[in-house]
Simulated assay, not measured.
Amino acid sequence: MTTPRLDTRSIEGDTPAQRLLALLEVIAEKDQYFTLQTLVDETGLPKPTLHRMLQQLENSGMLQREADNRHYSKGARLRRLAENLLLNDTVQGARHAVLADLVREVGESCNITALSGSEVLYLDRVETSAPLRFYLHPGSRVPAHCSASGKLFLAQMGATQRRRLLAEMPLEKFTRNTITDIEALEDEIAQVKEQGFAFDNEEFLPGLLCIAVLAPSSAGISNTGLAIQAPVMRMDRERALACLPVLERAAAAIARINQGALPEPSPQQDAEVGG
């Protein structure tokens, strides 16, 4: 009788620390004890390499060896990390609640985004309950030039900084509406800067319309976008604009949550600011 072969899980990373974190992600999904050989079969890593990584995680308290000395389980430090993350993640919970309220009010999928390099990163998303919808999960990335939030982030940059970024970005054409000419994109960005909101008019995915605003920031530059996305058969530009006041109220609520999460400046920092 042959043992069924497990699908291998890639342990990727440019540094040893990144590879250890990737291994912890594999381990975190397990609901049973595991052995060195189990992980060798699952990851495809050489046994000596994996043995060394498990020793490092055990020595740091992230893993612990069970009584038979063969099996491993999650260590106290790893469990404490998970518990602290859940206990103290009130900022994410509060922002998610605002997002969920926005979805209930407008009836369409909404997301919170940030600029990461030349891409828009989805930090959080709540889907509409409507049967026809586009699935873009948290962690998804969209090129900035064909994203409503991305145009807002680009509009905040100085002309030199934006030109430098656009010159290096591949302005890939995803649909017939994608803007791939730098001058045309600059014209679009100038309009976005003037009006304070942006559209993605089927520029990334055919049939998908998006309207976005930025959450205001006391620093002046915001890296938090808030967007509504809907199929064009349910939402056109006119209906999207009708949702703009609701979207702006939600963005203001997100901004208050972000501001409240900032630590109070220390007396020393106050003195330094005062000069």
Rank of each mutant, 00 (worst) to 15 (best):
P4F: 05
P4Y: 05
R9D: 08
S10I: 14
I11T: 03
G13Y: 05
G13H: 09
Q18D: 15
Q18V: 01
L20T: 05
L20N: 11
L24K: 09
E25Q: 15
V26F: 06
I27N: 02
A28D: 15
L36G: 06
L39E: 06
V40W: 13
T43F: 04
L45T: 04
P46Y: 10
P46K: 13
P48D: 10
L50P: 11
L50D: 14
H51F: 06
R52P: 00
L54H: 01
Q56Y: 09
L57I: 09
L57G: 08
E58I: 09
N59A: 13
N59E: 14
S60G: 14
L63F: 05
R65W: 01
A67T: 07
R70P: 00
R70G: 05
R70F: 15
R77A: 05
L78M: 09
R80V: 01
N84P: 02
N84D: 10
L85T: 02
L86K: 04
N88I: 03
N88W: 02
D89M: 11
G93M: 08
H96R: 14
L99S: 00
L102D: 04
R104I: 01
E105R: 10
V106Q: 01
G107I: 01
A114W: 06
L115F: 07
E119H: 07
V120H: 06
L123P: 01
D124R: 11
D124P: 04
R125P: 00
R125W: 01
E127W: 03
S129N: 13
Y135A: 11
L136P: 01
P138G: 10
G139H: 09
H145D: 06
C146R: 06
S149T: 07
A155E: 09
Q161L: 09
R163F: 07
R163I: 10
E168F: 02
L171Y: 05
E172S: 10
F174D: 03
N177S: 10
N177K: 11
E183P: 01
E186F: 11
E188I: 02
I189F: 08
A190F: 02
V192T: 08
V192F: 00
V192C: 03
V192N: 02
F199P: 09
F204Y: 15
F204T: 12
L208Y: 02
L208C: 08
A212F: 02
L214W: 02
L214V: 01
S218A: 15
N223V: 13
T224V: 14
T224I: 14
G225F: 00
L226R: 08
Q229I: 03
Q229G: 13
Q229A: 14
P231N: 08
M233P: 07
R234N: 14
R234K: 15
R239Y: 10
A240E: 04
A240F: 15
A240S: 06
C243T: 13
V246W: 01
E248V: 00
Q259R: 14
P263N: 08
P263Q: 07
E264Y: 07
S266K: 11
S266D: 14
S266A: 12
P267C: 03
Q268K: 12
D270E: 15
A271M: 11
E272R: 15
G275Y: 04
